[in-house]
Simulated scan of single mutants.
Amino acid sequence: MTFTVRAPASSANLGPGFDSLGLSVPLYTTVRVTPQAVTEVVPLGADLAGTPADERNYVYQAMTLAARRAGRSLPPARIEIETQVPLARGLGSSAAALVAGIVAGNELLGGPLDTETVLDVAAREEGHPDNVAPALLGGIVVATLDRLGTHYVRLTPPAHLGVTVLVPDFELSTSKARAVLPGEYSRADAVHALSHAALLVGALAQGRLDLLRHAMQDYIHQTWRAPLVPGLSDILDEAWRHGALGAALSGAGPTVLCFHDTRHATAPLHAYLQGVMARSGLTGQVMDFPIDEAGTLVER
């Protein structure tokens, strides 16, 4: 019997929450699985052109991770994959594919893994939980990974909190964005990161939208990655003047995320972000989204 798994995109870090904080966005990677005698992997759509159409495919490899954790062999199936998540843009495309694959593999096996185990498998494969946790659970998620497991708190998004994303038309690999980070940080930068991450989580938990601009300041990764994303420094400094509640580099970039108050028009913020792109010689899209609260869904 055919079933479908749908996993959302995600935006990680949100400023100071490096490798530990993220939220889900309603752009989806979808995997349709039909048990049959021989395995087929079928990437669909222009966005997945050139991705492996065999067992080397990342979604299929993710399915095998579920089987390995369950101590089982993965049954053969036809696996169709499509995505709305732009690749290498800082919106968790690999995390959506990973989570969709692990959940699909678990479902194909009859569901031997619970949600916490699925999350742990995904976080260990990714190396950090900030994208995979919201992709799986939806909403806003704070998570850590250690030798004992993956531990998380899921936050219901505050009322009236919306997301605006600026998605430039160029790719930025996570490996390149990580390569520019320093090997060591000063005590002052560490204290700044800890205090602002704590303030950001508290503000999100209590719906203190007025604190987001201050809480989202970061010196751990955004300062170093700014040269890779033209216009980022300007947006981080000035977006609040045009209606943003706060701004951050989305994941490793180049997408930039701004929070907005859904009770207010976003046209001034859109105009500002499009102006930044134009001055930087870039093209791209500016889009408004709610925060996806459903996370990964399975439909039969």
Rank of each mutant, 00 (worst) to 15 (best):
D114W: 01
D146T: 12
T255D: 07
V85C: 03
L113T: 01
S20K: 05
P35S: 08
P52L: 05
A122N: 04
V201S: 05
A88D: 13
P52A: 04
G17T: 09
S93H: 08
A95C: 11
E238D: 15
T117G: 05
M287R: 15
G45P: 01
Q222L: 08
L44N: 07
N57Q: 01
A248W: 00
E40V: 05
L113R: 01
D234Y: 10
G50N: 03
V201I: 14
G231K: 05
P16K: 02
L136K: 01
P254E: 10
T156D: 14
A100M: 10
L48K: 03
L236Q: 09
G90R: 07
R32C: 11
H214T: 15
I220T: 10
H160G: 06
G162H: 04
L148A: 15
R154Q: 14
A197S: 14
L98R: 10
L199A: 15
G183M: 04
P26N: 12
H242S: 11
A203G: 12
A123V: 11
P52Y: 01
S93M: 09
L14Q: 02
E299N: 08
V31A: 02
E125G: 00
T115W: 05
R263A: 12
E171C: 04
I140D: 00
L23D: 02
A12V: 09
Q36F: 00
R124Q: 13
C258A: 14
Y185V: 13
L109G: 06
A179W: 00
I220Y: 10
V121M: 08
I235Q: 02
A96E: 04
T30N: 01
V99M: 06
L44W: 04
L209Y: 07
G111K: 07
P268V: 12
D234V: 14
A67I: 02
A123M: 10
L109E: 08
S94I: 05
E80V: 09
D130H: 08
Y28L: 07
D120V: 03
T164I: 15
Q61D: 05
G92C: 11
V167N: 11
S10I: 07
A46F: 05
M63D: 06
Y58T: 13
P168Q: 09
V31H: 03
V167A: 11
A244S: 15
P157E: 01
D47P: 00
A188W: 08
S93R: 02
I140E: 01
L21C: 06
D120M: 04
T150S: 13
G246S: 13
D120R: 01
G243T: 13
L87F: 05
P268H: 14
P254D: 09
A67M: 05
T115S: 12
I102K: 03
R300P: 10
H270I: 07
A197F: 06
N131M: 09
R69Y: 07
F289V: 10
P230E: 12
A248F: 05
D130Q: 10
V165R: 00
Y28W: 11
E299T: 14
T115I: 13
S280F: 11
S93P: 10
T255I: 06
N13Y: 06
R154K: 14
L181Y: 00
P158H: 04
G149H: 08
A7F: 03
G92E: 07
G127W: 10
R78H: 11
T29A: 12
F259W: 15
